[in-house]
Design a protein around this nucleic acid. Structure first.
Lengths: 122, 122
DNA sequence: CAGAATCCATTCGGATACTG
DNA sequence: CAGTATCCGAATGGATTCTG
């Protein structure tokens, strides 16, 4: 796949020159590594204000405890906002915050590409 | 965070219209959710052919068993290639494959942004 | 409807020791 | 140097049950 004998770091076009240390790059990455985390961000980014049930049905088979935990983490981390409407039956809407939107922008190319690599059965 | 009352899905500029179902988007995402996986891809993308020791020292504190497992998974998945030079002491070099490079391109914006969000202590 | 709480099976990853 | 093998504690996520 192309040349890689003479100039190693030239195999990609836009490499950040300030990459010095990938050690301990956790925090956000840790959070995103939990199940459904990236997908939730992109889903909410795609459909806008999303109710709990919307998200739940988008991921067929997720347990409520898992999804609930994930949502809480993302809200706590400041990537999602949670608006609870005071009515009965209760209605809750999740939206991307400003940094959630930034995150989503960087996630979309990845997930979209991933979906074309043999995933997304349906 | 801007307006979000009238047109929900307009809060982001480049939304893919073909996003229909985020359920069961696993495979690649599953792999990337393992510890150090994304960072390894980007590290190898950044420094070119990387020896095991290079990678190990980039992540201060990683255990050899964990890193070894991660590298094997990425090689098996076709994102990294492994070249073993037949000499003593042994020398092994990991490189991105074609699809590894594609993956890396989509990962870099994310990790770079993540690094500016409060991670990367050193 | 939108979860929280509890319990538990599985998985993941670190420590350690050993090998070609 | 570049791992592999084994063991084990920690973390994750599902099932189930219950609640405002």
């Amino acid at each position: 796949m192309a040349k890689s004998d003479s100039s190693p770091p030239d195999s990609l076009d836009s490499l950040p020159a300030d990459v010095e240390c990938y050690c301990q790059l956790d925090g956000v990455i840790d959070l995103l590594s939990r199940q459904y985390a990236m997908q939730v961000i992109c889903l909410v980014g795609a459909i806008g204000p999303a109710r709990y049930g919307d998200i739940e049905s988008a991921f067929d088979g997720v347990s409520s405890s898992t999804l609930s935990t994930r949502l809480s983490e993302l809200v706590d981390a400041g990537y999602l906002s949670r608006h609870q409407h005071e009515e009965i039956p209760p209605r809750v809407e999740y939206e991307l915050t400003a940094s959630g939107a930034q995150l989503c922008e960087r996630l979309q190319p990845l997930l979209e590409w991933a979906g074309q690599q043999g995933d997304l059965p349906s």
